[in-house]
Simulated assay, not measured.
Amino acid sequence: MTDAPRAASAPRPQTRPRLAYHLTEGAGPTIVFLPGYASDMEGTKALALERWAKASGRAFLRFDYAGCGASEGKFEDQSLADWRDDALAMIDQAVTGPVVLVGSSMGGWIMLLAALARPDRVAALVGIAPAPDFTDWGFSQDEKLYILQHGRLERPNPYGPAPTVYTRRFWQAGEASRVMHGPIAIDCPVRLLHGQRDPDVPWAQSTRLAELLRTGDVQLTLVKDGDHRLSRDADLALLIRTVEEVLP
C-alpha cells in the first residue's frame, strides 16, 4: 500500500506525462476509481472507497489524470482520449488481474471506453452520474461554435472559484469517442447510480445508457433527492454497497 503519490510503474510514451496514484494492496479484483472532469483522486468518493477497501482487505487504486492533481502535465493540453489512455495505463501497468471500474461523471464515460478497450480485464462497472457523450449534449450549439472558433471555452464553476475550461482538443476527442449512438458491446455487470436532482447530467442519460448496454446484468438506482456529486454519507454508503455487490 502506498502512502504517497507514485508514478506509473512502467514507462509511458515520452510524449505523455507520468501519473500519480495511490494503490492499496488486497484481494482482487482491484477497484479503480476514475474521477470526473477537472477532478482529482482526493475527492470524497475516492477517499471513502479507499477507507472501505483498507478496512475490508480489498485492492483499490485511485489516480490523477495527466494535468490534474499530483500528476505531471498541463490540464489544457489534455483530451478525453488522453485521459482514456491514462486509465488504460493504470489498468495495464499499475495493477494485475481483473478490475472493477468506478467512474464518476466524465469518469463514467472513460469507464465505458476502457471496458471496450480491455474487455478481458474489466470484471464490472459502477457509474456515478455517468456522462458519456457530454461533448454532444452538454453544450449548446453556440458554445460548440465558440470552442471551434476560439479554441477554448470558460464556464462558471459551481464547485470552485476558478472557471471550468474546455478546449477544442478535448471537445473534438470527445466527439470522436461517442458511444451512445447504438448498442454498446459491454457484457460485464454494470451498476449505475444517479441523483434525480442532478443539475449537470440529466438522470435520463443513465436510463438511456442502461438500454444501450449489451449486457443483461444492468441495474440503475435513482436517488430522488440526490445531486450530481452523490457525496453525502447516505450516498457514500450506497456506493460502497453497490461496489460490494459486484465483487466476487
Rank of each mutant, 00 (worst) to 15 (best):
A7E: 03
A7W: 07
A10I: 00
P13K: 00
P17A: 04
L19H: 02
H22N: 01
T24Y: 01
G26A: 02
G26D: 02
A27H: 10
P29T: 12
M41W: 02
A46Q: 11
L47S: 07
A53Q: 10
K54R: 15
A55G: 12
A55L: 09
A55T: 07
S56E: 15
R58G: 03
F60S: 08
L61A: 07
R62W: 06
F63S: 11
G67N: 01
C68G: 00
E72N: 06
F75L: 14
A81W: 02
D82V: 08
R84S: 02
A87K: 05
A89V: 05
A89C: 07
M90A: 09
M90W: 12
G97Y: 11
G103F: 06
M106P: 01
G108T: 12
L113I: 04
A114I: 13
A117W: 02
A117G: 00
A117L: 02
R118Q: 12
R118Y: 09
V122L: 04
A123G: 09
L125M: 13
V126Y: 12
I128M: 14
P132D: 10
W137K: 04
W137F: 05
W137L: 03
G138D: 13
G138H: 14
F139P: 13
Q141R: 15
L148K: 15
L148S: 14
L148E: 15
R152M: 09
R155T: 10
P163T: 08
P163V: 12
R169A: 11
E175I: 11
V179G: 02
V179R: 04
M180K: 13
P183E: 05
D187Q: 14
D198S: 03
P199G: 03
V201T: 08
S206V: 08
R208D: 06
R208H: 13
A210H: 08
G216N: 11
G216S: 07
D225W: 03
H228Y: 03
R229V: 03
L230S: 02
R232G: 15
D233K: 09
L236G: 14
R241N: 13
E245D: 15
